[in-house]
Design a protein around this nucleic acid. Structure first.
Lengths: 221, 221
DNA sequence: TGTTAATTGTACCATCTAGTTCATTTGGTC
DNA sequence: GACCAAATGAACTAGATGGTACAATTAACA
């Protein structure tokens, strides 16, 4: 072809024409990376595989994110910012204590059940001792609000004589999170060992009710 | 050196003398492998690193376990058999319902807290969708006993009017496990996000009491 | 003691993988 | 339209990694 002649032998020729879209490329890469990290963890993920899931090339991954860990960190940050947004949208302060706590426990349960990707990434990050959370400036200043929200509701409940006093807000949070997290994070082993699929609709409904009930019983005076 | 001359060039020479110990070698490899898998997961673990932690060589790993996954499966199996042994040693049937449930919840909490290696391996296995649990014959026939133990205690408690009826034994197990598992599995991220170290003695004591209390409140009539 | 099967040591390799090199194209600015 | 910085494509590489080849040694036993 005459085209090939117009180009130095064996290097960077391009098909015909293309348009730039840096932000689109970034988002595209992040989405592909999230899938791969969620599926295979940090060590198990393959940069080439991420590139293949992308509309662009491996070259771009390194151009925008530096290295594999940088990409992973970016995925983590985006994920935490997303959940933060949801949390803020809950307006617990305008509800009576019991209703507020029910809503929070239910929301937390549902969010985990509907976002196993989130749960898996948190697992992966914990396997790595959360060292990427530690080095991320964006996440460091982010997450104390959940505890504050709980404390506010809890104290109103105590003042109204609905909740018993003396419970730490962190303990409430841990209980709610544990019940929401566990049957997503350990779904696979639960299925293997007990033969029950916690992802099945009936199982979810029952477990959801049990979780909320457990939280309320823990709090009630 | 004269020593080198007494041996065919470039192949398998040995220092001087050594004795065989197949079982010892096996155990040695399993222990080293457990450390490495616990620390780095299945994909992150390096066979060369496992070999280095061993008194023997990489050659032996492949001789005894076939491949990396075979070794990983062997580690998993050993771990599950160990916890099974502990479970069996609990004599819940001879205790009154409330005391039995308190003991079980406390034991479960302590076992997780004292064996973060176990927790991490279960996390790793769940990241891999528990596919190695699925292909292990030894584990398949193992683990329904925990549920049966709980059911027995629960039904005695219901009969005695101590527990409310209508709860599934699986739900009790999931609640106990979730509370025990979560603050070990997510210890790193909890520390990063909330600045609390759930491994610290005071935190453990408080969390343990909260977990047991939560389980009992969930059950009480 | 001679033979054989189970073990073990050393060196090696094929392949995979994160990251790079180098040239090229695009979009904006003057 | 000339020039420059940002963005992109294709091929390449150094090193890591799972796994093997081959020979040697040991234990058991006839």
């Amino acid at each position: 072809m005459s085209k090939a002649a117009s180009v130095p032998k064996g290097t960077g020729r391009k098909p015909a024409s293309w348009t730039q879209d840096p932000e689109g490329v970034r988002r595209d890469i992040l989405a592909a990376a999230k899938e791969e990290f969620v599926e295979n963890g940090l060590s198990g993920a393959r940069v080439d595989e991420i590139a293949a899931r992308t509309a662009t090339s491996k070259r771009m991954i390194y151009y925008y994110f530096g290295d594999k860990e940088g990409l992973y960190r970016a995925v983590l940050e985006e994920m935490y910012e997303r959940i933060r947004g949801f949390e803020r949208s809950l307006d617990l302060a305008s509800l009576p204590p019991v209703e507020a706590m029910t809503l929070l426990a239910g929301f937390t349960f549902d969010y985990h059940a509907e976002n196993p990707d989130f749960v898996r990434l948190v697992m992966v990050e914990n396997i790595h001792h959360a060292r990427h959370l530690a080095t991320s400036d964006r996440i460091a200043t982010l997450n104390l609000s959940a505890i504050d929200m709980i404390r506010e509701v809890y104290e109103r409940g105590v003042a109204a004589g609905l909740f018993r006093p003396g419970i730490e807000a962190l303990d409430i949070h841990l209980t709610i999170s544990a019940l929401a997290f566990y049957n997503v994070s350990n779904r696979a082993s639960i299925r293997q060992v007990f033969g029950h699929d916690m992802g099945a609709p009936e199982a979810l409904v029952r477990r959801r009710a049990a979780a909320i009930d457990t939280v309320l019983r823990m709090l009630r005076a």
